[in-house]
Amino acid sequence: MRAKGHKNMEPLGKKGKRHEVSEEPPVHHHGKDYVDPPPAPLLDMGELKLWSFYRALIAEFIATLLFLYVTVATVIGHKKLNGADQCDGVGILGIAWAFGGMIFILVYCTAGISGGHINPAVTFGLFLARKVSLIRAVLYMVAQCLGAICGVGLVKAFMKSYYNGLGGGANSVAPGYNKGTAVGAEIIGTFVLVYTVFSATDPKRSARDSHVPVLAPLPIGFAVFMVHLATIPITGTGINPARSFGAAVIYNNGKVWDDHWIFWVGPFVGALAAAAYHQYILRAAAIKALGSFRSNPTN
């Protein structure tokens, strides 16, 4: 055994001189190969002075408008065709594809500008994880709700003869299900969506799995698609309070308003659960904060 840094002596050369070869100690790199962004401040008044902040609000407004226009128009179109011929129309599968596909497209387009939330529940979850400030979260939600109202308003303007008679694409509890079941469905559905958002945008996961190229909007869009397949028969699938609010405002039906609280409480509780699960269980934020023990770096 040689001590670290010991110099090996080569055999004598032709001129009787030895050549010294130093053994360098091995270099170990212990630094993280990813960087977690610092927590967003609770109140960041400086954002109100930035054009990039207002540009993000515009992006969220337009994205939610387009999302509601395409998806609600798909729902109304399906009901129109299916009413004439039960074998016609895109069916539940087509409606789920419309919602999931539009989320994929719009998150891809707006992620670099606003983060591509397009959903108050997603914004709420990211706020709880300190990814956005309170001011940004509140104004994002306002922009999303206004965009949703305008998007559904366009559907009613273009499909006026069918809109009111075919339910307006509004969310309510389907016959045969109670409100408790509906709340549970919305909580679980939103949990799946927000958990996917956290996982797809996690810097640690991106660094660890850099050899697996995954476009973040793709799993998010698929999460929306899968949740719609499961919950369309129960609630019409909310998981997005802006989507439910925009449709309720334009359709303006008593039954829809009676059930409307479900589509805020369920998604917000689901977002809370997903944020807590990802941050405090998977990322062990509480343990790291207490410093009780180091998490396994290979996790």
Rank of each mutant, 00 (worst) to 15 (best):
H30R: 14
G31Y: 01
D36F: 00
P38W: 08
P41K: 04
P41C: 00
E47Y: 02
L48W: 01
K49R: 06
L50I: 06
W51C: 00
Y54M: 00
A56P: 05
A56Q: 03
I58L: 07
I62V: 15
I62W: 06
A63F: 06
A63G: 09
L65Q: 12
F67I: 09
Y69G: 05
V70L: 09
V72Q: 03
V72S: 07
V72C: 03
A73Q: 12
T74D: 07
T74C: 07
V75T: 04
G77N: 15
G77Q: 07
K79L: 05
K79C: 00
K79I: 01
L81I: 04
L81W: 09
N82G: 07
N82F: 13
D88P: 11
D88L: 06
G91M: 12
G91N: 14
A96Q: 04
A96F: 01
A98N: 12
F99N: 02
F99M: 05
F99V: 05
G100S: 03
G100P: 02
G100Y: 08
G100M: 08
G101H: 12
M102A: 10
V107C: 05
C109G: 07
T110I: 02
T110Y: 01
A111I: 05
A111E: 13
I113T: 14
I113N: 09
S114P: 12
G115W: 01
G116A: 10
G116K: 12
H117W: 08
N119C: 04
N119V: 08
P120T: 12
A121M: 10
A121N: 12
T123P: 01
F124L: 13
G125E: 04
G125P: 01
F127L: 11
F127A: 09
F127W: 14
A129Y: 12
A129W: 10
V132F: 09
V132M: 10
I135G: 05
I135A: 12
A137K: 01
L139S: 03
L139V: 03
M141L: 01
A143I: 03
A143D: 04
Q144Y: 10
C145N: 15
C145R: 14
L146G: 08
G147L: 07
G147M: 08
V152R: 06
G153Q: 15
L154Y: 08
V155H: 14
K156H: 15
A157E: 10
F158E: 06
F158S: 05
M159Q: 15
M159Y: 15
K160F: 11
S161Q: 13
S161C: 05
Y163K: 12
G165N: 10
L166P: 11
A170P: 15
G176F: 11
